[in-house]
Amino acid sequence: MSEISILSKADLLARTLTMLSETVDRYELFADQMDVVNNPEAADIFRWLAEKQNNRTQVVESLSKDTELPHISPWDYNWDDAINTSAHYMMTPYHTLSLAIAVEQSAAKLFLQIEQSEISSDVKKMAHGFAREANDFCAQLEKKRREYPMPEKGWDEDHDPPLMLE
């Protein structure tokens, strides 16, 4: 989990923005993948997720407007749960939303840890706010997931073998 300590608002904002941009990039990538493998339902949900995260990014960016943020190199943190998820070409909307829920749960957990660490109260307050947002989004996703059926066993069965390309 976190390898750098969050001491200031600037640290927290930088960290949050990096996490958000990671998830936006991932969701966009997955949306593209789903387009390529002709899975429009999953693609649409990933696009919607990317847009949601993008909106949150804009909010956090506006909060950071007057703050000089430290640069975080990719290897300076390792938010494994979010950046290491992978998609499946036959994944259903249920899987798609489950993936996003896991990401949000992980984010909320991280912000909670930060909130509980030895930091000033205004940073704590901000971390608390971010954790709440993540939890709220998570609840929204869970609600949305209920609109879709749970995938049946064998959902990833492909009756054709893989193709030969080059």
Partner: peptide
């Protein structure tokens, strides 16, 4: 250009890296 790799392929992450 969107990659033609299988979803889940490690190469996506290499591209990202």
């Amino acid at each position: 250009t969107k990659p033609v790799w299988c979803p889940g392929c490690g190469d996506y992450s290499v591209l990202l890296a």
